[in-house]
């Protein structure tokens, strides 16, 4: 076993670059729980912006949620919105700077509960923005309360006996909803809990930004993700749980475009 571990010298000697952190992620220590999907989603978003050469013209919007501090990590100009209002800020930016690249990065509580109106109407106006939507089925930041996307029967601190769809409603498939709107150009659902899926998700994000630059309308990328802390699981358990339970309700793939 031990002879397989490379020493730092050997690694440098090989001269083969296997991985390089994008310069569009800052060196700040991520505030996410170890194992959380937010980190990967951040990284691939910023890699795309770097690869497309959009660094100097991009303005990102952080939501209220665990990714409220995204502006500490994403090394481009960033704004921080009130809870749910990111698409409205994005609209404001894009309307005064139509040639800039604008994206929001939002959780499910932010995008699909308190910000539903802003989400639907930005998409319906076909704002030329990209929305990255992290769906982890729970409110991570505030300690694991029910989200609009919480699965039927799933436990949370405000559905301690499982989500009862008769009193708490059904998990909101907001991605399906925005796919119906003529204003959206590209609507897709991705995941990042396996390497292959990360590559696919990154391709989708790239396409979303490319379409924005072609003024095609709103591009919308949902990423089904985990919240090991909120779900009260280990990171590995949470990824397995996601794979087994979330993807039936939230099937992966392009919904439009």
């Amino acid at each position: 076993m031990s002879e397989n571990i490379l020493t730092p010298e050997e690694i440098i000697k090989t001269g083969e670059l296997v991985f390089k952190k994008t310069k569009l992620m800052t060196d700040a220590e991520l505030s996410y729980c170890p194992g959380c999907g937010h980190g990967v989603a951040h990284r691939i978003t910023m890699e795309v912006i770097e690869e497309l050469g959009l660094e100097e013209q991009t303005i990102g919007i952080a939501p209220v949620g665990c990714s409220v501090l995204a502006y500490e990590f994403m090394n481009v100009d960033m704004q921080e919105a009130a809870h749910g209002r990111a698409p409205a800020l994005a609209t404001g930016i894009k309307r005064v700077y139509p040639n800039k690249t604008v994206f929001t990065y939002q959780g499910d509580g932010d995008l699909a509960a308190i910000g539903t109106a802003e989400t639907i109407h930005a998409c319906n106006r076909g704002e030329n923005i990209t929305i990255i939507f992290i769906n982890n089925g729970i409110y991570g930041m505030t300690g694991g309360q029910m989200a609009p996307t919480t699965l039927p029967g799933m436990n949370s601190s405000t559905s301690p006996y499982g989500r009862d769809v008769h009193t708490m409603g059904y998990p909101l498939k907001i991605t399906e909803l925005v796919a119906m709107l003529p204003g959206t150009s590209y609507v897709t659902r991705q995941a990042v809990h396996k390497p292959g899926l990360v590559r696919k998700a990154k391709k989708a994000i790239k396409k979303a930004f490319e379409l924005q630059m072609e003024n095609k309308g709103t591009s919308f990328v949902e990423i089904v993700s985990n919240c090991n802390s909120g779900w009260k699981m280990t990171p590995v358990e949470s990824n397995e749980w996601l794979d087994k339970n979330m993807l039936d309700y939230y099937p992966l793939g392009d919904l439009k475009g």
């Binding site: 539903t116 609009p148 405000t158 559905s159």
Partner: peptide
């Protein structure tokens, strides 16, 4: 948040018929 968390755990609809709802905003 403990206000709504406590109410959801207590299930007051069983105790008194009180309604508890988590709104979207």
């Amino acid at each position: 948040s403990e206000v709504i968390e406590y109410l959801m755990a207590e299930e007051p609809h069983k105790r008194t018929g009180m309604v508890v709802l988590q709104a979207e905003s």
